[in-house]
């Protein structure tokens, strides 16, 4: 969409006004500074998704809409998790991070902060696998997506 002040609020306003749910929304400028690219994760029947697509296209600031889930695509989300890392937990957390291909990006004598990237379900799985009491804080970026192979969203 056009990289204009207020464009984001038009999209957010559309979802709330029409009662569509947003599971996540990410947005940032692209290599072309006049454009931003937004990835929205939403859920709905085929009819609802069709309406969402049309309604988004109707927004004047929106240049192009693609439903990535219609074909092969890659979805990635970044998560930072702060966990307790004392005593035997310290080794355990390191091991879990390795299994999920996470990286420990901050260390204190009581905590680790683990960075994990992947599809949303993988991040969910990681949190599931951890001892609940060990999780001190999490932050997730929301998903970004891109089509596989030759499939391109370019203006």
């Amino acid at each position: 969409m056009e990289n204009e002040a207020g464009a984001l609020s038009r999209v957010a306003g559309l979802f709330s006004a029409r009662g569509y749910n947003i599971e996540s929304l990410t947005v940032a400028p692209t290599e072309d500074a006049t454009l931003s690219r937004m990835t929205i994760v939403t859920r709905g029947s085929d009819d609802v998704i069709e309406q969402i697509t049309k309604q988004l296209n109707k927004l004047i600031d929106v240049v192009k809409v693609v439903d990535l889930s219609e074909a092969g695509h890659i979805e990635r989300e970044l998560m930072l998790v702060k966990v307790r890392a004392e005593g035997e937990l310290r080794e355990e957390m390191k091991r879990m991070s390795d299994i999920f291909r996470g990286r420990i990006v901050d260390v204190t004598d009581k905590t680790y902060t683990i960075e994990l990237t992947g599809a949303g379900y993988k991040l969910d799985a990681f949190l599931e696998a951890l001892d609940k009491d060990a999780i001190l804080e999490t932050v997730r970026s929301g998903a970004s997506g891109i089509g596989r192979g030759d499939r391109m969203l370019k203006v």
Partner: peptide, 14 residues
């Protein structure tokens, strides 16, 4: 004004 009218205009500008 842009915020208030957003849901009831075709488009608006500041």
């Amino acid at each position: 004004m842009v915020g208030i009218t957003r849901p009831c205009v075709k488009h608006n500008f500041l």
